[in-house]
């Protein structure tokens, strides 16, 4: 029995998650256990994030690699991944959480929506770019910032004191250049690949969140696969995870070096500065999220907190 797997994501070729997606495709196609043909469609070729989610739900796309923020409209509980100042900034601790029982609990929340979530890929920590250092809560006040179209991300920026504006990624460069936008948040490799350092002077290293990707597949398609294929895909996704992580770490360093060489100033936060931001942003988001997810949200939060301690 032969299968077909279209993998969709939003970033251009060469981005860490694109390399990860290709690693999955290459692995499963070469694997003896599974007769499958796999293609990667980068750069939103098969649609923007909403269309990709729907595609995975009704089966026109078999697999997607999407930022957690973009999966929140399907399942708000999954937005816990975007909690600010909550996740460990130590990579090993973070990866352990991605593989633990709480993450499994999170994965299961997608099943009622026709989606099987296979893995979480780490693609870096969020940092702010702007034309002045953003080290204090006051510095954020009333600045216009680009926000991912997600209600949690929007609330998160409001708590920072920002004025969030949704805008497609391809338009953000121009808006930063003309000053229509004052700031944006992304991991270093993403900001570098979008060339934001050409139009922004400062990178403030807040590590305020992660930008982690849910790797998900259409449930009906998944259940119709042979055991061999399912095994091969699970192994392939684990390899994709490693490739993405390695490439993210590499680009964190190389991109930072190139951005500094091009004149961007990197600003590190003191522990006190970071704590001041955390106290403003974290409790607000937690309560906002719990108000929408109720007891099930509380249980998921407790499960992750238990693993953290």
């Amino acid at each position: 029995q032969s299968f077909n797997m279209k993998i969709a994501h939003l970033l251009p070729p060469g981005d860490p998650r694109d390399l990860g997606a290709h690693a999955v495709a290459d692995f499963v196609m070469a694997d003896e256990r599974c007769d499958i043909s796999a293609q990667v469609f980068p750069s939103g070729q098969l649609g923007s994030f909403t269309e990709i989610n729907e595609g995975v739900q009704f089966g026109s796309i078999e697999m997607s690699v999407q930022p957690a923020a973009y999966m929140a409209p399907i399942e708000m509980k999954s937005a816990i991944i975007d909690f600010p100042f909550f996740w460990p900034t130590d990579i090993d601790e973070l990866l352990a959480l991605h593989k633990g029982p709480a993450a499994q609990m999170l994965a299961e929340t997608f099943e009622p929506h026709g989606i099987k979530m296979l893995d979480i890929w780490h693609t870096g920590f969020m940092q702010w770019t702007s034309n002045e250092p953003l080290t204090t809560p006051e510095a954020f006040q009333s600045k216009i910032a680009r926000v991912m179209p997600s209600s949690l991300m929007t609330e998160r920026q409001r708590l920072f004191g920002l004025n969030p504006v949704t805008m497609p990624f391809s338009e953000t460069y121009s808006a930063l250049q003309t000053g229509a936008l004052a700031a944006q948040e992304n991991p270093i490799p993403t900001s570098y690949n979008m060339r934001f350092h050409e139009v922004q002077e400062y990178m403030t290293m807040t590590f305020h969140g992660t930008l982690d990707q849910f790797v998900s597949v259409n449930m009906v398609w998944w259940n119709g696969l042979t055991d061999g294929c399912r095994d091969a895909i699970i192994e392939g996704v684990a390899i994709g995870n490693a490739v993405t992580l390695e490439s993210t770490m590499e680009q964190e360093e190389s991109a930072r070096a190139e951005m500094e060489a091009s004149g961007m100033t990197f600003v590190e936060l003191t522990d006190e500065e970071r704590a001041a931001m955390r106290d403003i942003v974290f409790p607000g988001i937690r309560d906002w999220w719990l108000a929408q997810t109720g007891d099930e949200g509380q249980a998921l939060l407790d499960a992750f907190m238990a693993e953290m301690n």
């Binding site: 251009p12 060469g14 391809s170 460069y173 690949n193 050409e198 139009v199």
Partner: peptide, 10 residues
């Protein structure tokens, strides 16, 4: 184009 090919937009 610049983003696809990793070239300077400026």
């Amino acid at each position: 184009y610049s983003v696809e090919t990793n070239n300077s937009i400026g």
